[in-house]
Structures are given as C-alpha cells and as structure tokens.
Design a protein around this nucleic acid. Sequence first.
DNA 1: CGGATTTAGTCAGCCTCTCTGTCTAAATTA
DNA 2: TAATTTAGACAGAGAGGCTGACTAAATCCG
Lengths: 146, 146
Amino acid sequence: MAENLNVGLLLFIPYRAVENRVFAALAAAGHGDITLAQGRLLQRVDDGGSRLSELAEAAQVTKQTAGYLVDQLERAGYVERTPDPTDARARLVRLTERAQALKPIGDAAVAEVEAEWVAHLGRRRMEQLHDTLTRLREITDPYWKP
Amino acid sequence: MAENLNVGLLLFIPYRAVENRVFAALAAAGHGDITLAQGRLLQRVDDGGSRLSELAEAAQVTKQTAGYLVDQLERAGYVERTPDPTDARARLVRLTERAQALKPIGDAAVAEVEAEWVAHLGRRRMEQLHDTLTRLREITDPYWKP
DNA sequence: CGGATTTAGTCAGCCTCTCTGTCTAAATTA
DNA sequence: TAATTTAGACAGAGAGGCTGACTAAATCCG
C-alpha cells in the first residue's frame, strides 16, 4: 500500500512530525518529564480551569485515564486541583505557572515547524491548510463548541 | 488554551475522526480484533512484502514493538512471514487474503468520511487539502521515498 | 581471504497508557 | 423527599511501547 495514502494517514504524518518537534523542544528546555499523553491533556486545559470530565471528553479518553494523567501532572507541578465553587462534586484543574512557562516553548517549536512548511508549500497554501483544518474541526471535534 | 489551536492539534483532530470511523467499520464487518497499533502497521505493509525494520521505521516504533505487533497480526491471520530471498537474515512480512479483504472496507469508510468533508468544505477545498497534505509528506514522512 | 563491524531480527524485563467495573458523594429530577 | 444522574476516585488488567542484551547473516577492509 505504498502510494496514494488515505486522508487519515496523510493527516497523521505531519501531526506526528509537529509533535516530535514540540517534545524535543520541551525536553531541550528541561521539561523532558512531560509525556505525550500528558501533553495532549495539558493542551486542553482552559485558562479558567477545566473539569476532569471536560478534559476526558476533549482528549477522547475515559475519565479514569484523564484522572490518572492529571494525577501525574499534579505531582510534577504542572496543574493543581481547586474546588469548583459551583459544584461541590467537581474540582477545577488549573495550569500552574510552571505549565504556563511551557506554552511559549511549545509555541516557538510549532512556529519553527510552520516556517519550514511555509518554505515548502508557500504562504498561500499554508494559510489555506490552516483555514481548512479549522473548518474541519467543526465536524470532527467532539469537543467543538463555536 | 481554548481557541486558535496549533497546527498539530488541528491535524490530530480530523485524523482521529477518520481513524474512529474506519475502526468502527472494520468492527462492524467482523474485524473487531484489529487494534489501532496493528492497523497502523498493517497500513504500511507493501504489496511486495515489507521487512520488519521498514515497518518499524514507517510506523515510528522500535523493531521490537513492530515485531510484537507482527506476531499478533500473524497469529490473527492477517500477515505471514516468508524468507527474504535476497537476505537470509531478513524475512518479508506479507499481507494474507484476510488482510486484503480489509482494504475495501477501510477504503469505503474513508470514502464516506471524505464525502462528509466535501459536503462541509466544498470539493475544491477538499482537493486542496489532499494535495497539500501529500506535498507535506515530502518533508514530514521519515519513510518518504519519492 | 579472514577478522571486524554492521544489520536483521529475537528475547526478556519494565513502565506508561488506557480500559472496564465498582463505588462515593453531591446535584438534579420527579 | 426519594430516585436518578453526574463528578470523580479506586482497583485491576491488558496492550503498547521502550531499553538492553543477544544471535546470525552480511558487508567492509586490511
């Protein structure tokens, strides 16, 4: 099945490339302790705090898995759990400053990759890609809310 | 980190959507025994047969992991290992008929998803997306050979 | 040619991720 | 207020992935 890969694989390949670069950058900046699964969850934490169930849904894992990952992130000092003032059953997962510090590093790595892609594709095509993927999110992101 | 997701995540979301649909279709057709990791490897098996190391590189896993997955696929009757006539150390992993039967099912599921995407994006944008991703592969696929 | 190095693959052990199932406490519904 | 739903935690199991160490065949080089 060498040529004419299906869209799924075509999407996966560059995704994986971005991910690898981001993790390499984080590791180089002394954050080699973050794992892939943790990173995926971390990306989805809202600035105002997120509930565990929300994170689980967004990352498409079970609540148990999300809980397991948040435990690790909490122990590593990337998030903290605070009581949810509107619901005593729930707790809000919030990013710590340590996690906030990650964002510029990750963003820089993504920007670097994007620059390479622009060089290969041209700016116009790159913008189209970004735009198309954003639109696609409307029908493929289970967490989507407009 | 609600809006303006990075390209990595933007690629990941639709990729995941395709994958879910394909696996649902395979399961519905009585191939619920294939796992995600097995599927990723299976996709990369060349019609002429592939070496374990090639598969490992293509799927970006270690040879050990690839071996583990091929063992399972072999036991489930999806691939077979035949000696490589050109190198007595190596063995060629080949798809069995059972695996060949998977392709049309997967393809149909992908086609269905693509149709939905075309309905949402328009044909022109969809073609651009496919084309752009294919070009991107040249600089993001470690397995790329022109 | 023959020894040294590289390459293909396997075996063993370990850790992470993810799941299912079960349980509690709080909130919501009837 | 009683019944149901929802948020999350706890326990156990299995798959996927890794590193390290090993064998055998192929290739390189003096």
